[in-house]
Write a protein that binds this DNA or RNA. Sequence first.
DNA 1: TTCGCTTTTTGACTTTTATCAAAGAGCCTG
DNA 2: CAGGCTCTTTGATAAAAGTCAAAAAGCGAA
Lengths: 187, 187
Amino acid sequence: MHIITFLQQHLPLSAEVVEELQKIIVREHLPKNHVLVRPGQHCRRLFFIEEGLIREHYQSLSGKETTYRFHTEDNFVTADESFIDGQPSQYYLETLEETTLCSISHEDFEQLLKRHPLFEQLHVLVMHQVMREMKERITALQFQTATERYESLLQNQPSIFQRVSLGHIASYLGISQETLSRIRSKK
Amino acid sequence: MHIITFLQQHLPLSAEVVEELQKIIVREHLPKNHVLVRPGQHCRRLFFIEEGLIREHYQSLSGKETTYRFHTEDNFVTADESFIDGQPSQYYLETLEETTLCSISHEDFEQLLKRHPLFEQLHVLVMHQVMREMKERITALQFQTATERYESLLQNQPSIFQRVSLGHIASYLGISQETLSRIRSKK
DNA sequence: TTCGCTTTTTGACTTTTATCAAAGAGCCTG
DNA sequence: CAGGCTCTTTGATAAAAGTCAAAAAGCGAA
């Protein structure tokens, strides 16, 4: 979905605002396996995924990769430590499919919120949703077994298994690839 | 710290706004082990902890208690699913020490944000901070060992060990009480 | 279709953590 | 300070998950 369409579903946008948005939104098409942001880099843009899939991950000192989460179409994504605090990113953002993004700069984003308080509502709404998801994630990691977490994911986002390799899913679940493979074979 | 003092440290408050706040803020003193919110209940107040410590936890079907997190003085706390979405809470909020709280109702909170856009800044700031903490928590649970998580907690919040029983800390770390005890004895 | 590469599975073994049970320590109260 | 709590530790054992290595399966390109 195009970002303007998405915004219109959540907010009543005047023709002027739409025009203003069109001026500041940059649209781009990225190939599969393209690294958008890597640790140490600054990221001053907020992206909206029109189509595609982005993996957010980091590497431990020993070189092991861990998937923090997947971002799919119709969602916003950015290197949040960097976008919000101006710090360098600690994570990678990498496409796992051909991906179409729309993005706006940090400055334009701030301006937009200032000029049109309407956007603040959506901003807060999105943060609430992100926090809800994070809380569920924490409790899942804290007290569910690997098998339970696997089954939740299968329930809530079955399509992810068609789109992402099991190695990436395993690290997202916080388990090794072999363990995930064994969980799957036990059914 | 009193909530007004806290707010003044973050925002320039006019005398009128302070007066307005004083009208809507309710201050209360709770004993140790008081349950503020329990699962199924609605919570329409936002609390600020002036003094004390609150544990947020839930119970699995099997009856096992898991600590989602601890909330300490100079922080806001509420049953977020309930305060934000109007759903019944899924968690307990329970004091682990004598606790002094200031709180405002959901309606007053909304009014305040609407009337004084200044507060929206703090609102967003607090949410950013919460999200930062949650992200760190997720990555810790995902790829650190129990020992590493224990050591991080010891680094970042050493005082918690003086204030909270090891059983609660163990469940916060996502491990059994016995495992925590063994980690501690190995040093 | 075949070669080469990546992903997934399987097996053997080790490490980590949970569980159950009981002992020990600490602490409040009468 | 004695008795009865709760909290913490310790021990033995079981379950869960990790690691390493190799085989199997899948897939894309020549």
